[in-house]
Protein backbone atom coordinates (compact mmCIF):
# COMPACT_ATOMS: atom_id res chain seq x y z
CA UNK A 1 0.00 0.00 0.00
CA UNK A 2 1.28 3.46 -0.85
CA UNK A 3 0.20 6.93 0.22
CA UNK A 4 0.93 10.00 -1.88
CA UNK A 5 0.59 13.57 -0.66
CA UNK A 6 1.80 17.06 -1.46
CA UNK A 7 3.01 19.40 1.26
CA UNK A 8 5.44 22.28 1.37
CA UNK A 9 6.08 22.02 -2.36
CA UNK A 10 7.12 18.38 -2.11
CA UNK A 11 5.46 15.35 -3.70
CA UNK A 12 5.95 12.52 -1.22
CA UNK A 13 5.26 8.80 -1.53
CA UNK A 14 5.08 6.64 1.58
CA UNK A 15 5.34 2.89 1.09
CA UNK A 16 3.43 1.66 4.11
CA UNK A 17 4.77 -1.85 4.52
CA UNK A 18 8.46 -1.35 3.75
CA UNK A 19 8.66 1.95 5.62
CA UNK A 20 10.26 3.55 2.55
CA UNK A 21 9.79 7.23 1.80
CA UNK A 22 10.31 8.73 -1.64
CA UNK A 23 10.48 12.37 -2.65
CA UNK A 24 9.35 12.58 -6.27
CA UNK A 25 8.52 15.17 -8.90
CA UNK A 26 5.01 15.56 -10.28
CA UNK A 27 5.72 13.32 -13.28
CA UNK A 28 6.99 10.47 -11.12
CA UNK A 29 4.02 10.98 -8.80
CA UNK A 30 1.74 10.44 -11.79
CA UNK A 31 3.71 7.41 -12.96
CA UNK A 32 3.43 5.84 -9.50
CA UNK A 33 -0.27 6.66 -9.36
CA UNK A 34 -0.93 4.91 -12.68
CA UNK A 35 1.54 2.05 -12.21
CA UNK A 36 -0.61 -0.57 -10.42
CA UNK A 37 -3.45 -0.60 -12.97
CA UNK A 38 -1.86 0.37 -16.28
CA UNK A 39 0.69 -1.03 -18.72
CA UNK A 40 3.88 0.84 -19.44
CA UNK A 41 2.54 1.90 -22.84
CA UNK A 42 -0.69 3.19 -21.27
CA UNK A 43 1.29 5.19 -18.70
CA UNK A 44 3.51 6.72 -21.37
CA UNK A 45 0.66 7.69 -23.69
CA UNK A 46 -1.44 9.11 -20.83
CA UNK A 47 1.39 11.26 -19.50
CA UNK A 48 2.63 12.42 -22.90
CA UNK A 49 -0.86 13.83 -23.43
CA UNK A 50 -1.04 15.28 -19.89
CA UNK A 51 2.37 17.00 -20.14
CA UNK A 52 2.22 18.00 -23.81
CA UNK A 53 4.47 21.00 -24.31
CA UNK A 54 6.83 20.12 -21.45
CA UNK A 55 10.27 19.58 -23.08
CA UNK A 56 11.50 17.49 -20.16
CA UNK A 57 8.66 14.99 -20.54
CA UNK A 58 9.28 12.73 -23.50
CA UNK A 59 8.83 9.05 -24.18
CA UNK A 60 12.38 8.06 -23.25
CA UNK A 61 12.17 9.99 -19.97
CA UNK A 62 8.85 8.41 -19.08
CA UNK A 63 10.04 4.88 -19.84
CA UNK A 64 13.11 5.52 -17.67
CA UNK A 65 10.84 6.65 -14.85
CA UNK A 66 8.65 3.55 -15.21
CA UNK A 67 11.82 1.44 -15.06
CA UNK A 68 12.86 3.23 -11.86
CA UNK A 69 9.48 2.47 -10.30
CA UNK A 70 9.76 -1.17 -11.34
CA UNK A 71 13.23 -1.37 -9.79
CA UNK A 72 11.93 0.07 -6.52
CA UNK A 73 9.06 -2.40 -6.53
CA UNK A 74 11.41 -5.31 -7.16
CA UNK A 75 13.71 -4.18 -4.35
CA UNK A 76 10.75 -4.09 -1.94
CA UNK A 77 10.69 -0.30 -1.53
CA UNK A 78 7.47 0.43 -3.39
CA UNK A 79 4.15 -1.43 -3.43
CA UNK A 80 5.63 -3.79 -0.84
CA UNK A 81 3.07 -6.45 0.12
CA UNK A 82 1.78 -6.63 3.67
CA UNK A 83 3.33 -9.79 5.08
CA UNK A 84 3.16 -8.68 8.69
CA UNK A 85 -0.36 -9.75 9.71
CA UNK A 86 0.88 -13.13 11.04
CA UNK A 87 3.28 -11.23 13.33
CA UNK A 88 0.46 -9.20 14.91
CA UNK A 89 0.38 -10.98 18.24
CA UNK A 90 4.02 -12.06 18.34
CA UNK A 91 5.61 -9.43 20.57
CA UNK A 92 2.91 -9.46 23.22
CA UNK A 93 2.71 -13.27 23.16
CA UNK A 94 6.49 -13.55 23.40
CA UNK A 95 6.49 -11.05 26.25
CA UNK A 96 4.08 -13.25 28.19
CA UNK A 97 3.26 -11.59 31.49
CA UNK A 98 6.28 -9.30 31.50
CA UNK A 99 5.74 -5.82 32.93
CA UNK A 100 8.38 -3.21 32.09
CA UNK A 101 6.80 0.13 32.94
CA UNK A 102 4.60 1.54 35.68
CA UNK A 103 2.80 4.82 36.06
CA UNK A 104 2.83 5.46 39.81
CA UNK A 105 -0.10 7.59 40.90
CA UNK A 106 1.69 8.95 43.94
CA UNK A 107 -0.96 11.63 44.51
CA UNK A 108 -4.67 11.49 43.81
CA UNK A 109 -4.95 15.12 44.69
CA UNK A 110 -3.96 18.38 43.06
CA UNK A 111 -3.32 22.00 43.96
CA UNK A 112 -4.93 23.14 40.72
CA UNK A 113 -8.58 22.88 39.72
CA UNK A 114 -8.45 22.65 35.92
CA UNK A 115 -11.94 22.22 34.51
CA UNK A 116 -10.79 20.07 31.57
CA UNK A 117 -8.79 17.58 33.68
CA UNK A 118 -9.40 13.99 32.51
CA UNK A 119 -8.56 12.90 36.06
CA UNK A 120 -11.30 15.02 37.69
CA UNK A 121 -8.89 17.44 39.36
CA UNK A 122 -6.53 14.61 40.22
CA UNK A 123 -9.02 12.55 42.23
CA UNK A 124 -9.94 10.18 39.39
CA UNK A 125 -13.59 10.25 40.46
CA UNK A 126 -12.63 8.94 43.91
CA UNK A 127 -11.22 10.09 47.22
CA UNK A 128 -8.13 12.24 47.65
CA UNK A 129 -5.14 10.07 48.56
CA UNK A 130 -1.37 9.95 48.68
CA UNK A 131 0.63 6.79 47.97
CA UNK A 132 2.61 5.57 50.98
CA UNK A 133 6.28 4.65 50.67
CA UNK A 134 5.38 1.04 51.53
CA UNK A 135 2.90 0.83 48.65
CA UNK A 136 5.33 2.48 46.24
CA UNK A 137 8.14 0.15 47.35
CA UNK A 138 5.92 -2.87 46.76
CA UNK A 139 5.07 -1.49 43.29
CA UNK A 140 8.77 -1.26 42.43
CA UNK A 141 9.33 -4.81 43.73
CA UNK A 142 6.34 -5.97 41.65
CA UNK A 143 7.89 -4.35 38.58
CA UNK A 144 11.27 -6.02 39.12
CA UNK A 145 9.65 -9.40 39.85
CA UNK A 146 7.58 -9.28 36.66
CA UNK A 147 10.18 -7.78 34.33
CA UNK A 148 11.73 -11.06 33.20
CA UNK A 149 14.86 -10.48 31.15
CA UNK A 150 14.03 -6.83 30.42
CA UNK A 151 16.79 -4.56 31.62
CA UNK A 152 15.27 -1.13 31.00
CA UNK A 153 12.44 -0.41 33.43
CA UNK A 154 10.41 2.79 33.46
CA UNK A 155 8.62 4.48 36.32
CA UNK A 156 6.57 7.62 35.78
CA UNK A 157 5.60 9.68 38.82
CA UNK A 158 2.12 10.90 38.03
CA UNK A 159 -0.98 12.33 39.66
CA UNK A 160 -2.85 14.46 40.36
CA UNK A 161 0.18 16.48 41.27
CA UNK A 162 3.11 14.23 42.24
CA UNK A 163 5.01 17.04 43.95
CA UNK A 164 2.31 16.98 46.65
CA UNK A 165 3.93 13.68 47.72
CA UNK A 166 7.50 14.71 47.00
CA UNK A 167 9.23 13.03 49.95
CA UNK A 168 7.80 9.65 48.92
CA UNK A 169 8.93 10.23 45.32
CA UNK A 170 12.49 10.82 46.52
CA UNK A 171 12.42 7.79 48.84
CA UNK A 172 11.18 5.56 46.02
CA UNK A 173 13.92 6.73 43.66
CA UNK A 174 16.54 6.06 46.33
CA UNK A 175 15.10 2.59 46.94
CA UNK A 176 15.15 1.76 43.22
CA UNK A 177 18.73 2.98 42.86
CA UNK A 178 19.71 0.81 45.84
CA UNK A 179 18.39 -2.39 44.23
CA UNK A 180 18.90 -1.84 40.50
CA UNK A 181 22.51 -3.02 40.32
CA UNK A 182 21.86 -6.18 42.30
CA UNK A 183 18.78 -6.92 40.17
CA UNK A 184 20.52 -6.13 36.88
CA UNK A 185 18.03 -3.43 35.96
CA UNK A 186 18.20 0.14 34.70
CA UNK A 187 15.45 2.37 36.10
CA UNK A 188 14.36 5.40 34.10
CA UNK A 189 12.29 7.87 36.05
CA UNK A 190 10.03 10.56 34.69
CA UNK A 191 7.83 13.12 36.40
CA UNK A 192 4.81 15.11 35.21
CA UNK A 193 4.08 18.31 37.13
CA UNK A 194 1.99 21.48 37.05
CA UNK A 195 4.99 23.34 38.47
CA UNK A 196 3.46 25.09 41.48
CA UNK A 197 5.64 23.29 44.03
CA UNK A 198 8.92 23.39 42.13
CA UNK A 199 11.76 24.63 44.34
CA UNK A 200 15.54 24.23 44.40
CA UNK A 201 15.29 20.78 45.99
CA UNK A 202 12.92 19.59 43.25
CA UNK A 203 15.16 21.06 40.55
CA UNK A 204 18.33 19.49 41.94
CA UNK A 205 16.76 16.07 42.47
CA UNK A 206 14.96 15.98 39.11
CA UNK A 207 18.04 17.03 37.22
CA UNK A 208 20.01 14.29 38.92
CA UNK A 209 17.49 11.44 38.77
CA UNK A 210 14.72 12.07 36.24
CA UNK A 211 15.53 11.13 32.66
CA UNK A 212 12.66 13.33 31.56
CA UNK A 213 10.26 15.82 33.11
CA UNK A 214 6.93 16.79 31.60
CA UNK A 215 5.92 20.37 32.45
CA UNK A 216 2.27 21.37 32.04
CA UNK A 217 1.86 24.75 30.34
CA UNK A 218 -0.93 25.66 27.93
CA UNK A 219 0.87 28.55 26.21
CA UNK A 220 -0.32 32.14 26.20
CA UNK A 221 -1.15 33.55 29.64
CA UNK A 222 -4.80 34.23 28.78
CA UNK A 223 -5.21 30.69 27.43
CA UNK A 224 -3.38 29.02 30.31
CA UNK A 225 -5.10 31.03 33.03
CA UNK A 226 -8.57 30.49 31.60
CA UNK A 227 -8.53 26.82 32.59
CA UNK A 228 -5.49 26.10 34.76
CA UNK A 229 -6.62 27.79 37.96
CA UNK A 230 -6.25 27.10 41.67
CA UNK A 231 -9.15 26.49 44.05
CA UNK A 232 -9.53 30.24 44.56
CA UNK A 233 -9.98 30.64 40.82
CA UNK A 234 -6.63 32.33 40.27
CA UNK A 235 -4.59 31.53 37.18
CA UNK A 236 -1.24 29.82 37.67
CA UNK A 237 0.80 31.17 34.72
CA UNK A 238 2.75 33.88 36.58
CA UNK A 239 3.67 31.49 39.38
CA UNK A 240 4.87 28.56 37.28
CA UNK A 241 6.62 30.05 34.25
CA UNK A 242 9.65 31.38 36.18
CA UNK A 243 9.96 28.01 37.97
CA UNK A 244 9.81 26.10 34.68
CA UNK A 245 12.43 28.43 33.17
CA UNK A 246 14.73 27.91 36.14
CA UNK A 247 14.30 24.12 36.04
CA UNK A 248 14.91 23.88 32.29
CA UNK A 249 17.95 26.15 32.44
CA UNK A 250 19.40 24.00 35.22
CA UNK A 251 18.76 20.74 33.34
CA UNK A 252 21.69 21.39 31.06
CA UNK A 253 20.27 19.59 28.07
CA UNK A 254 18.66 16.66 29.88
CA UNK A 255 15.25 15.61 28.61
CA UNK A 256 12.16 17.68 29.27
CA UNK A 257 9.19 18.90 27.38
CA UNK A 258 6.45 21.42 27.81
CA UNK A 259 3.10 19.68 27.54
CA UNK A 260 0.08 21.82 26.75
CA UNK A 261 -3.54 20.99 26.05
CA UNK A 262 -5.60 22.83 23.46
CA UNK A 263 -9.37 23.04 23.51
CA UNK A 264 -12.23 24.66 21.60
CA UNK A 265 -10.93 27.93 23.05
CA UNK A 266 -7.63 27.74 21.15
CA UNK A 267 -7.61 25.49 18.08
CA UNK A 268 -5.02 28.03 16.81
CA UNK A 269 -2.60 26.33 19.18
CA UNK A 270 0.56 27.18 17.25
CA UNK A 271 0.33 30.66 18.80
CA UNK A 272 0.71 28.94 22.17
CA UNK A 273 3.64 26.82 21.01
CA UNK A 274 5.40 29.87 19.59
CA UNK A 275 4.73 31.72 22.85
CA UNK A 276 6.47 28.89 24.72
CA UNK A 277 9.39 29.19 22.31
CA UNK A 278 9.51 32.93 23.06
CA UNK A 279 9.78 32.03 26.76
CA UNK A 280 12.92 30.02 25.97
CA UNK A 281 11.42 26.53 25.88
CA UNK A 282 12.47 24.45 22.88
CA UNK A 283 11.01 20.97 23.57
CA UNK A 284 7.29 21.33 22.99
CA UNK A 285 4.03 19.45 22.82
CA UNK A 286 0.40 20.51 22.53
CA UNK A 287 -2.31 17.87 22.60
CA UNK A 288 -6.04 17.95 21.85
CA UNK A 289 -8.24 17.87 24.94
CA UNK A 290 -9.73 14.50 25.95
CA UNK A 291 -13.35 15.05 26.99
CA UNK A 292 -16.95 14.18 26.18
CA UNK A 293 -18.25 15.54 22.84
CA UNK A 294 -20.77 17.85 24.55
CA UNK A 295 -18.21 19.44 26.85
CA UNK A 296 -17.66 23.19 26.22
CA UNK A 297 -13.93 22.45 25.82
CA UNK A 298 -14.49 19.77 23.17
CA UNK A 299 -13.13 20.33 19.67
CA UNK A 300 -15.79 20.72 16.97
CA UNK A 301 -15.57 19.40 13.40
CA UNK A 302 -14.65 22.93 12.34
CA UNK A 303 -11.90 23.00 14.98
CA UNK A 304 -10.45 19.74 13.64
CA UNK A 305 -9.99 21.32 10.20
CA UNK A 306 -8.34 24.35 11.82
CA UNK A 307 -6.02 22.10 13.81
CA UNK A 308 -4.93 20.24 10.67
CA UNK A 309 -3.92 23.55 9.07
CA UNK A 310 -2.16 24.50 12.29
CA UNK A 311 -0.06 21.34 12.13
CA UNK A 312 1.11 22.41 8.66
CA UNK A 313 1.82 25.95 9.86
CA UNK A 314 3.88 24.50 12.70
CA UNK A 315 5.95 22.30 10.38
CA UNK A 316 6.75 25.20 8.05
CA UNK A 317 7.69 27.44 10.97
CA UNK A 318 9.89 24.76 12.52
CA UNK A 319 11.79 24.45 9.23
CA UNK A 320 12.22 28.23 9.18
CA UNK A 321 13.62 28.20 12.71
CA UNK A 322 15.92 25.33 11.77
CA UNK A 323 17.30 27.32 8.83
CA UNK A 324 17.88 30.24 11.18
CA UNK A 325 19.83 28.04 13.58
CA UNK A 326 17.35 28.19 16.46
CA UNK A 327 15.37 24.97 16.17
CA UNK A 328 12.50 23.82 18.34
CA UNK A 329 11.13 20.30 18.59
CA UNK A 330 7.53 19.13 18.57
CA UNK A 331 6.79 15.81 20.22
CA UNK A 332 4.93 14.30 17.27
CA UNK A 333 7.38 15.44 14.62
CA UNK A 334 10.44 13.75 16.12
CA UNK A 335 10.32 10.67 13.92
CA UNK A 336 13.49 8.65 13.52
CA UNK A 337 13.54 7.15 10.03
CA UNK A 338 16.69 5.06 10.42
CA UNK A 339 16.76 4.24 14.14
CA UNK A 340 13.08 3.94 14.92
CA UNK A 341 11.27 0.89 16.24
CA UNK A 342 11.17 -2.54 14.62
CA UNK A 343 8.10 -4.00 12.96
CA UNK A 344 7.04 -5.83 16.13
CA UNK A 345 6.85 -2.60 18.10
CA UNK A 346 5.15 -0.81 15.22
CA UNK A 347 2.43 -3.44 15.19
CA UNK A 348 1.92 -3.82 18.91
CA UNK A 349 1.76 -0.23 20.15
CA UNK A 350 2.09 1.10 23.67
CA UNK A 351 1.61 -2.08 25.67
CA UNK A 352 -1.08 -0.68 27.95
CA UNK A 353 -2.67 -3.41 30.04
CA UNK A 354 0.17 -5.83 29.38
CA UNK A 355 3.70 -4.50 29.79
CA UNK A 356 2.61 -1.04 30.97
CA UNK A 357 0.21 -0.44 33.87
CA UNK A 358 -0.87 2.31 36.23
CA UNK A 359 -0.78 1.88 40.01
CA UNK A 360 -3.23 3.75 42.24
CA UNK A 361 -2.27 5.12 45.68
CA UNK A 362 -3.84 1.94 47.11
CA UNK A 363 -1.82 -0.40 44.90
CA UNK A 364 -4.53 -1.33 42.42
CA UNK A 365 -3.42 -2.03 38.84
CA UNK A 366 -5.10 -0.47 35.79
CA UNK A 367 -4.25 -0.75 32.06
CA UNK A 368 -3.03 2.85 31.94
CA UNK A 369 -3.50 6.17 33.70
CA UNK A 370 -6.51 7.05 31.54
CA UNK A 371 -8.49 4.05 32.80
CA UNK A 372 -7.93 4.70 36.50
CA UNK A 373 -11.11 5.48 38.41
CA UNK A 374 -13.42 3.07 36.59
CA UNK A 375 -13.61 -0.13 38.62
CA UNK A 376 -14.43 -2.29 35.59
CA UNK A 377 -10.91 -1.64 34.25
CA UNK A 378 -9.13 -2.86 37.38
CA UNK A 379 -6.61 -5.58 36.47
CA UNK A 380 -5.58 -6.63 39.98
CA UNK A 381 -3.15 -5.24 42.52
CA UNK A 382 0.57 -5.14 43.26
CA UNK A 383 0.34 -7.87 45.90
CA UNK A 384 -1.62 -10.51 43.96
CA UNK A 385 -0.67 -9.35 40.47
CA UNK A 386 -3.09 -9.43 37.55
CA UNK A 387 -6.20 -11.32 38.60
CA UNK A 388 -8.49 -10.11 35.81
CA UNK A 389 -6.66 -12.09 33.15
CA UNK A 390 -9.59 -11.83 30.72
CA UNK A 391 -9.17 -8.05 30.68
CA UNK A 392 -5.42 -8.35 30.15
CA UNK A 393 -6.07 -10.62 27.16
CA UNK A 394 -8.40 -8.00 25.66
CA UNK A 395 -5.58 -5.47 25.85
CA UNK A 396 -3.09 -8.01 24.53
CA UNK A 397 -5.27 -8.20 21.43
CA UNK A 398 -4.90 -4.48 20.69
CA UNK A 399 -2.59 -3.98 17.72
CA UNK A 400 -2.39 -2.48 14.25
CA UNK A 401 -4.40 -5.38 12.80
CA UNK A 402 -7.14 -5.47 15.45
CA UNK A 403 -9.61 -3.14 13.73
CA UNK A 404 -11.31 -3.72 10.38
CA UNK A 405 -11.46 0.05 9.87
CA UNK A 406 -7.65 0.15 9.71
CA UNK A 407 -7.31 -2.47 6.97
CA UNK A 408 -6.79 0.07 4.19
CA UNK A 409 -5.08 2.79 6.26
CA UNK A 410 -1.59 3.76 5.09
CA UNK A 411 -0.64 4.97 8.58
CA UNK A 412 -1.39 1.91 10.66
CA UNK A 413 2.26 0.93 11.05
CA UNK A 414 2.92 4.47 12.28
CA UNK A 415 0.08 4.58 14.81
CA UNK A 416 0.23 0.90 15.86
CA UNK A 417 -3.54 0.79 16.15
CA UNK A 418 -3.86 3.96 18.19
CA UNK A 419 -4.61 4.76 21.80
CA UNK A 420 -6.93 2.30 23.55
CA UNK A 421 -8.12 4.98 25.97
CA UNK A 422 -8.99 7.41 23.18
CA UNK A 423 -10.81 4.61 21.34
CA UNK A 424 -12.76 3.74 24.49
CA UNK A 425 -13.70 7.33 25.25
CA UNK A 426 -14.79 7.92 21.65
CA UNK A 427 -16.55 4.64 20.89
CA UNK A 428 -17.03 2.77 24.16
CA UNK A 429 -14.67 0.01 22.99
CA UNK A 430 -10.89 -0.22 23.36
CA UNK A 431 -10.84 -1.72 19.88
CA UNK A 432 -13.08 0.98 18.47
CA UNK A 433 -11.80 3.88 16.42
CA UNK A 434 -11.60 7.59 17.13
CA UNK A 435 -12.01 9.07 13.63
CA UNK A 436 -11.03 12.64 14.53
CA UNK A 437 -7.94 11.30 16.28
CA UNK A 438 -7.06 9.32 13.14
CA UNK A 439 -7.39 12.45 11.00
CA UNK A 440 -5.10 14.44 13.27
CA UNK A 441 -2.59 11.60 13.59
CA UNK A 442 -2.27 11.18 9.82
CA UNK A 443 -1.81 14.92 9.34
CA UNK A 444 0.93 14.96 11.99
CA UNK A 445 2.78 12.08 10.34
CA UNK A 446 2.51 13.75 6.92
CA UNK A 447 3.99 16.93 8.41
CA UNK A 448 6.77 15.02 10.16
CA UNK A 449 7.70 13.15 6.98
CA UNK A 450 7.60 16.37 4.93
CA UNK A 451 10.04 17.92 7.39
CA UNK A 452 12.43 14.98 6.93
CA UNK A 453 12.20 15.34 3.15
CA UNK A 454 12.80 19.10 3.38
CA UNK A 455 15.74 18.68 5.76
CA UNK A 456 17.31 16.19 3.37
CA UNK A 457 16.70 18.42 0.34
CA UNK A 458 18.06 21.53 2.05
CA UNK A 459 20.98 19.86 3.80
CA UNK A 460 19.50 20.55 7.23
CA UNK A 461 19.60 16.90 8.31
CA UNK A 462 22.07 16.02 11.05
Amino acid sequence: MIHQFELGGYHIVVDSCSGSIHSVDEVAADVIGLYPDHTEDEIVSTLLARYAGRPDVNEAELRECVADVTALKESGQLFAPDTFAPLAGYLKAKSGDIVKALCLHVAHTCNLNCSYCFASQGKYHGERALMSFETGKRALDFLVEHSGTRRNLEVDFFGGEPLMNWDVVKELVRYARAIEKEKGKNFRFTLTTNGLLIDDDVIDFCNREMSNVVLSLDGRKEIHDALRVDYAGNGSYDRIVPKFQKLVQARGGKGYYMRGTFTHRNPDFTKDLFHMADLGFTELSMEPVVCAPGDPAALTDEDIETVKKEYETLAFDMLRREREGRPITFYHYMIDLTGGPCIYKRISGCGSGTEYMAVTPWGDLYPCHQFVGEEKWKLGDIWQGVTNTELRERFRGCNAYAREECADCWARLWCSGGCAANAYHASGDIRGVYPAGCELFKKRIECAIMMKVAEEAEGLAE
Binding site: S18, S20, S23, R150, N152, D336, G340, P341, C342, Y344
Partner: peptide, 30 residues
Protein backbone atom coordinates in the same frame (compact mmCIF):
# COMPACT_ATOMS: atom_id res chain seq x y z
CA UNK B 1 17.09 12.42 -15.10
CA UNK B 2 16.21 11.09 -11.67
CA UNK B 3 12.68 11.96 -10.71
CA UNK B 4 12.65 9.86 -7.54
CA UNK B 5 14.79 10.38 -4.45
CA UNK B 6 14.52 7.67 -1.81
CA UNK B 7 15.25 8.63 1.79
CA UNK B 8 17.28 6.31 3.99
CA UNK B 9 14.87 4.46 6.27
CA UNK B 10 14.92 1.40 8.49
CA UNK B 11 13.90 -1.67 6.49
CA UNK B 12 10.81 -2.98 8.26
CA UNK B 13 11.01 -6.41 6.63
CA UNK B 14 14.61 -6.83 7.78
CA UNK B 15 13.66 -5.69 11.28
CA UNK B 16 11.44 -8.78 11.55
CA UNK B 17 14.59 -10.90 11.78
CA UNK B 18 16.29 -9.27 14.76
CA UNK B 19 11.21 -7.70 19.11
CA UNK B 20 13.59 -7.40 22.07
CA UNK B 21 11.15 -5.12 23.91
CA UNK B 22 13.83 -2.88 25.43
CA UNK B 23 12.59 0.32 23.77
CA UNK B 24 10.80 2.97 25.81
CA UNK B 25 7.10 2.68 26.48
CA UNK B 26 5.23 4.79 23.99
CA UNK B 27 10.98 6.36 19.79
CA UNK B 28 14.44 4.91 19.43
CA UNK B 29 15.29 1.27 18.90
CA UNK B 30 17.53 0.12 21.75
Amino acid sequence: MTRIKTLKTRDLCASAEKGCGECQTSQKCE
